[in-house]
Structure formats: structure tokens, C-alpha cells
Design a protein around this nucleic acid. Structure first.
Length: 417
RNA sequence: GGAGAGGUGGCCGAGCCAGGUUGAAGGCGCUCCCCUGCUAAGGGAGUAAGGAUGGAAACGUUCUUCGUGGGUUCAAAUCCCACCCUCUCCGCCA
């Protein structure tokens, strides 16, 4: 949820919203609606003050005066009820409009649509495709089985088998240890959450069609542990001195991938279920941009340690999504496709999400909303697939990246006979 | 799944059955002041959050909030309904 006051008073804030493609008309309409609402609020509150006062008087009044006073108060109440109806209508209007306004883009974000991104850094080259692409290699090694997945659960489900499972778990354990060393608290959160949590985390109503629902219990499978991590301090008033709070969540993630028919159908690039280590930070407003850079640094370090050539882009305003004020995508070179594909990303939501979550921090300068940030430490399945292409050898064997060896007890894996 | 108890301010805890001077007794904690050679003990004062509004500010006015959302009433922590959560016992279970 945006800050209407800032929208009114801060031209830069408003410009950031417009950079995201919000029409000036919508913003003006919102400001007007908010004005109307506040005016009505004052009126309603004045009437309530009168009503409250007369109710108190009745309590103190002599028995013979009561009848008359109650009658008068009754009349007041009817008037108040009518005014309240008008007010709540005006309120609903504001709510409806405010939800349509995304978090304004930060000034350092390039303005424009998807293509307008800015390349921040390029690391490593753009090697040629190996003999087998990631999907074929996974199958050839007996590591992935999409056919079996489809038979048991449907398309976009896969089995992961053999050494790939050890690699998967090694990736998880390795990233977790790295994050713990950086002050993150490891968390395995619930993956089924209530509707209200989805709403507060900002995924509903916009992304509702991407989410699996367990009807019987009115629970929803999370598409990312960002959701339950955001729930950890919902409604809390934190101590500003203990910020930033950094959490590293590990969970399976579930996505319906509605509307992606025919896209990325090979292998495990885009599947309904995958594991992910996610970073989530509650930061003071003053430090959030530093934290954002730190998230990017960690993501690049992980990618570099795995020997993956990549680039980082500063995502353009029109492609940011609702909540992010700024987002970096780390895109790894996928040789078989001859292009960079997204592996991880990190966003600063500033106070957009915290406003709905009602997470504030109390410090010497009073209480203020915190900033929330999130980033992918390791999207495990997708990471594996990049490794399949980059660490596949001409003889069909697979070399395990150095950093993972202590975690899986493997170094070179021979092809199946 | 069955039976019962309960959710009140930073924390503990009264109030609820008999609705009104209770935004909430009392205690703990915290802040400031006094006393004290230091510490301990003691005395005094203060101490919920969020919103709107006035003010440069200090601060003032007002609304909302006693798990959440509705309802009854001139008036709800207190009565009614629904939901959420916690605890105890029984059953079941990785």
C-alpha cells in the first residue's frame, strides 16, 4: 500500500508512481477521493463526539430526565448512521483506488518497459552449448524424470533422482551456512497459509490465479517462503535498535504457472514445485538501500562460487511489479538457449508491504514503518539446471563445483553406462 | 475427531454473571525527581497504540481499539452471533 500523504506532498514519489505506468488521472482521482474521505471523517467524528457525550450524560442523569434524553440521543444516532454510511462509501472508494497504485519506482530505476533494463554488471563469458542441453543431460544421467512426474502428478512435475538429490541438498546446506555466517536466522516456515496472509504479503488479489488452494481447509500453498517470512513480524512493533532482522527461509514453493502453456517446457526450468532458499530482511528506512546492495552481493557471490557466468540487471520501472521500488535480476548465461535467463532476484519493497503488514519499529525518533526486502539465495532446481550445462564435460561426465563437494561427498560423476 | 477452560495495556492480572463517572483497579517492569558515603531499601510523579485536526514547536482537541468481524442498545471489555487462536483431558498419529 502506498503512502497517500507522500503522493500528495512529494513530487519525486509521484513521479516514481508515474514511471511505473500509473496514469496521472488515477493518482488525481485518488487524491481527490482521499480529500473527500478525510473531510467526512472529521464530520463523522464530531457527530460521534456529541453522541458519546450525550450517552454519558444519560448515565448520570436523574431517572425522570432519562426518557427525554434517550429520545434525543436516538435521533442523533439516526443522523450519525446516515453520515457513517456516506463515510464508509468514501472510504471504500479510497481503498479501491489505493490498491491500484504500485510502489513508486526508486529514482535509480531506469524508466521504461521490460526492454529498458540497465545492465549493471557482466561476469564471465558466454560459452557455447554443451553436447546435451540441461533437460537432455538430466535425463541421460538419470537425475530428472519428467515423464514419471507427468504420469503421477501432471505436466510440469518432475522426479529428481540419484546424485542430483545429493546436489540439491548440498546447495541448500551450503547456502544456508553462508547466510548464517552473514547474520541470517535460518527458518523453515509453514508452506500452507491463510488467505489473509496472502493478502497482507501482497500476493492477493493480483496473483491469486498463480496459487494452489486447499479448499477444504481454506489454506493456500505458498509460491515462495517470502509469504510466511513476511508473516513473522506482522503487526509487530519492533525495537529499532535490533534492526535489521535477516531471515533465510527454506521451503518448497508451489506455482500454478497459469498462462505459461508452451513456455519453458523442457526439463525442470519451470515446474509447479521447487525448493528455494529465500532471504528476507526487515530494515530501517535509512539502511534499506544498503541492505538491497548487500542482497545483490550475496546473490552474485553464490553464483560466482558455482562458476556460473552471469549479468545483473537493474529492472526497468515498467517491469517491476507492484511492490518493488527497485529490483535486480541476476541472469545466468544458458548456453543451450544462447541467452541470459533469470536465476535469482532481489527487491526493496520500501514501506509498501510493511504498511499493510503493520510492521513498525520504535526508536529514538518515534515509531515508523520498517522497510522490507527479499531476495533469492538459491532457487535450487533452476540452479541445478544451469550447473548441468556449465559443468557437463565433453565425455558426458559431470564435475561438481568445488564449494559443493564437502556437502555431497561427490567430485566427478560418470555418465550412465 | 470428542469434552472443557480461556484470550484485557511492555508483562502479570482485576473487571464480564447484575451494560453507564472503566481507556480500563492492583502489581511488575520502565522513565524522571527526592532521599542515601556506594549499593540495597524507601518516598513522589509519569508510563498503550493508531488515525483525523489545530500549532513553528511544546502541546491541545477528537475518533477508534479490551483476539477478529458483525449485531443489540441512547450507551458494550461487559449481552448476542460467527470466526481465529491458546491451554487441559480423551482419542488418533509421523
Amino acid at each position: 500500500m502506498i503512502d497517500v500523504r507522500a503522493l500528495k506532498d512529494d513530487p519525486a514519489y509521484r513521479a516514481g508512481a508515474e514511471a511505473k505506468g500509473v496514469s496521472a488521472d488515477l493518482l488525481d482521482e485518488l487524491l481527490a477521493a482521499d480529500d473527500t474521505r478525510r473531510g467526512l471523517q472529521t464530520e463523522v467524528e464530531e457527530m460521534r463526539a456529541t453522541a458519546n457525550a450525550s450517552a454519558k450524560e444519560i448515565g448520570k442523569a436523574a431517572p425522570d430526565e432519562r426518557e427525554a434524553k434517550i429520545a434525543a440521543a436516538s435521533e442523533l444516532k439516526a443522523e450519525l448512521g446516515a453520515k457513517e454510511a456516506v463515510y464508509s462509501e468514501a472510504s471504500a472508494k479510497v481503498d479501491e483506488l489505493i490498491l491500484q497504485v504500485p510502489n513508486p519506482a526508486h529514482e535509480s530505476v531506469p524508466t521504461g518497459d521490460e526492454e529498458a533494463f540497465e545492465v549493471v554488471e557482466v561476469v564471465g563469458g558466454t560459452p557455447d552449448a554443451p553436447p546435451l542441453d540441461h533437460a537432455a543431460f538430466g535425463e541421460a544421467m538419470g537425475w530428472t524424470d519428467n515423464e514419471l512426474g507427468a504420469a503421477v502428478s501432471g505436466s510440469r512435475f518432475a522426479y529428481l533422482k540419484g546424485a542430483a538429490v545429493l546436489l540439491e541438498l548440498a546447495l541448500v546446506q551450503w547456502t544456508m551456512q553462508k547466510l548464517v555466517a552473514r547474520g541470517f536466522t535460518p527458518v523453515i516456515p509453514p508452506v500452507l497459509v491463510r488467505e489473509e496472509m496472502m493478502v497482507d504479503a501482497g500476493f492477493f488479489p493480483t496473483d491469486r490465479n498463480q496459487v494452489y488452494e486447499v479448499n477444504e481447509d481454506e489454506l493456500f500453498l505458498v509460491g515462495t517462503s517470502e509469504v510466511p517470512l513476511a508473516g513473522m513480524h506482522r503487526g509487530d512493533r519492533l525495537d529499532a535498535a535490533e534492526l535489521p532482522l535477516r531471515y533465510a527461509g527454506f521451503s518448497s514453493c508451489f506455482r500454478r504457472e497459469a498462462g505459461t502453456y508452451g513456455k519453458d517446457t523442457r526439463g525442470i526450468f519451470r515446474v509447479h514445485q521447487f525448493d528455494k532458499v529465500e532471504m528476507f530482511i526487515w530494515s530501517s528506512p535509512e539502511k534499506s538501500w544498503e541492505e538491497h546492495e548487500m542482497l545483490r552481493t550475496i546473490e552474485q557471490e553464490i553464483i560466482n562460487d558455482l562458476g556460473l557466468p552471469h549479468r545483473v540487471i537493474n529492472v526497468a520501472s515498467g517491469d517491476l511489479g507492484n511492490a518493488a521500488a527497485k529490483k535486480y535480476d541476476c541472469e545466468v548465461w544458458l548456453p543451450s538457449e544462447g541467452r541470459y535467463r533469470e536465476l535469482t532476484s532481489c527487491s526493496n519493497y520500501t514501506d509498501y508491504s510493511a504498511r499493510r503488514l503493520k510492521t513498525r519499529a520504535k526508536g529514538d525518533d518515534g515509531t515508523e514503518l520498517v522497510h522490507t526486502l527479499n531476495g533469492t539465495a538459491c532457487a535450487v532446481g533452476r540452479t541445478l539446471l544451469f550447473l548441468f550445462e556449465h559443468w557437463q564435460q565433453p565425455d558426458g561426465s559431470f564435475v561438481v563445483p568445488e564449494v559443493l563437494r564437502p556437502f555431497c561427498g561427490l567430485d566427478t560423476i560418470a555418465p550412465l553406462a
